[in-house]
Design a protein around this nucleic acid. Structure first.
Lengths: 83, 83
DNA sequence: GAGAATTTGTACGTATGTATG
DNA sequence: ACATACATACGTACAAATTCT
């Protein structure tokens, strides 16, 4: 799954879907850090603003906890939405 | 090929023909952006409304994909009409 | 402790496209 | 043809918090 400029969904929605999938697949363990914003920016070829919107969406859903100066962490499973 | 104000065809039909020709000639590659609306507007000396009608016509035909905040892209060849 | 590097937070400006009047 | 408002997206710069050397 990759970012597609021709996809009708906003870029940040596409990235949020990618990260959510990787979290649910167990690629990122709870309490572990996600890749940094600049890393995700370069990896997917989008702006940092779009990366931050995607992470904010996942934080609102409960999948991610963001801490200034430290990074973005996968939230404990208890914080995740009902499956 | 240029826009002719004395031509009986609407300006947007003329512009659509020009852009379609340039796309088919390979001047604009699939998945690449077209020139912006304001650029086309100045380049051909017509209104933005006429430019948008031309682009919409090409989008309806399948040659172009329009995405808010990103631009207008040349569609992949699979989306083009039969040649 | 000091300083550099990294990471997230905030605030702009610019460009583009959409929608409405 | 013009104006307005809004959403999306990119770029830049700097601040704040943390970590590393």
């Amino acid at each position: 799954m990759t970012i597609d400029q021709l996809d009708e969904r906003p870029l940040w929605v596409q990235l949020a879907a990618i990260l959510r999938e990787r979290i649910l697949a167990g690629e990122f363990e709870p309490r572990q850090t996600l890749p940094s914003e600049s890393h995700l920016q370069q990896e997917h070829g989008i702006s940092r603003g779009s990366v931050r919107r995607a992470i904010r969406a996942l934080a609102d859903e409960g999948y991610v906890v963001v801490r200034q100066g430290r990074g973005s962490f996968v939230a404990p499973r208890e914080a995740w939405p009902e499956v």
